[in-house]
């Protein structure tokens, strides 16, 4: 994640970016859990909606790999076909999300160190 590029894109300071990244981590966790649960319940509509919802914030954060995975999951769920490929994509998403959250913790620490008001 390029902090400076994001600050320019969002026209914000470190303080706001920090709060946004924290909110993003929360949403990433929450929505990924919903997608996993929806898969267990074979609820393709819920998978599609949640993948779609997460996509916009993932794009804001400029996370390309995660964007591609979510687009694949959204398209897979939209096809209304329960496939082993979709199952594998959702498993991979979970792994990717854990890695991204680890990386984002470093970003949060960096932003906290550079946010005088925090």
């Amino acid at each position: 994640m390029n902090i400076q590029a994001l600050k320019t894109y969002l026209n914000c300071d470190n303080g706001f970016l920090l709060s946004l990244v924290q909110k993003f981590v929360e949403e990433l966790n929450d929505t990924t859990n919903k997608i996993t649960l929806a898969w267990q319940n074979q609820n393709l509509t819920s998978i599609k909606l949640n993948a779609h919802k997460l996509l916009s914030s993932v794009k804001v954060m400029q996370l390309k790999e995660l964007t591609l995975s979510l687009e694949k999951i959204e398209a897979g769920a939209a096809s209304k076909h329960i496939s082993s490929e979709l199952e594998e994509d959702i498993k991979q998403l979970d792994i990717q999300v854990k890695k991204v959250i680890n990386d984002l913790q470093l970003t949060i620490e960096e932003l906290e160190a550079n946010s005088p008001c925090i």
């Binding site: 949403e27 919802k53 916009s56 804001v60």
Partner: peptide, 16 residues
């Protein structure tokens, strides 16, 4: 918007 991340972002833009 059902996405709290997006509403926070738009609200931030509005404040600018």
């Amino acid at each position: 918007d059902d996405d709290p991340f997006f509403t926070e972002l738009i609200n931030h833009y509005i404040s600018q």
